[in-house]
Amino acid sequence: MLNEGNRVNTEQWPFVQVDVFAHEVWQGNPVTVFYDVPAQMEKEALQALAREMHGPETLFVTECSDGSRVCLARLFTPERELSSLGHAALGAYYVLQQQGKTQEGSIHLAAAKESVVCHEDDQQWIWMATAPLMVKGLATAVGEWLNQCGLGHTAINGMMPPAWVPSELPQILVFVNSVQDLAKIHVSREHLLTMDQEWGAKGLYALALSGAGAFTARYFSEHYLVAPAAAAMALGSYLLYCAGETQARRFVVTTTDERFSEVHVRLNTQRPGSLEIGGHVVASVRGAVSLGR
Rank of each mutant, 00 (worst) to 15 (best):
A92D: 08
A92H: 00
A92E: 06
A92Q: 02
Y93S: 00
Y93E: 00
Y94V: 04
Y94H: 15
Y94R: 13
L96G: 01
L96T: 01
L96S: 02
L96P: 01
Q97T: 09
Q97K: 15
Q98W: 02
Q98D: 10
Q99G: 01
Q99R: 15
Q99I: 01
G100S: 04
G100H: 08
G100L: 05
G100A: 07
G100T: 04
K101M: 10
K101R: 15
K101E: 03
K101Q: 15
K101G: 10
K101N: 14
T102E: 02
T102A: 15
Q103T: 05
Q103W: 03
Q103P: 00
Q103N: 03
Q103C: 03
E104K: 08
E104W: 10
E104N: 09
G105P: 09
G105S: 10
G105I: 09
S106L: 03
S106V: 00
I107A: 02
I107H: 00
I107C: 02
I107Q: 05
H108D: 03
H108T: 12
H108I: 02
H108M: 03
L109E: 10
L109H: 06
A110L: 14
A110R: 15
A110C: 14
A110V: 14
A111S: 15
A111R: 09
A112Y: 05
A112W: 07
K113H: 12
K113E: 15
K113Q: 15
K113G: 12
K113N: 14
E114F: 12
E114W: 09
E114I: 11
E114K: 13
E114T: 08
E114M: 07
S115R: 13
S115Y: 07
V116L: 12
V116A: 05
V116T: 06
V117R: 10
V117T: 13
V117S: 08
V117Y: 04
C118W: 05
C118V: 09
C118Q: 06
H119N: 07
H119K: 10
H119C: 07
H119A: 11
E120T: 09
E120F: 02
E120H: 06
D121A: 13
D121V: 09
D121F: 12
D122H: 04
D122W: 02
Q123Y: 09
Q124R: 10
Q124V: 03
Q124P: 02
Q124L: 08
W125N: 10
W125H: 13
W125C: 05
W125M: 14
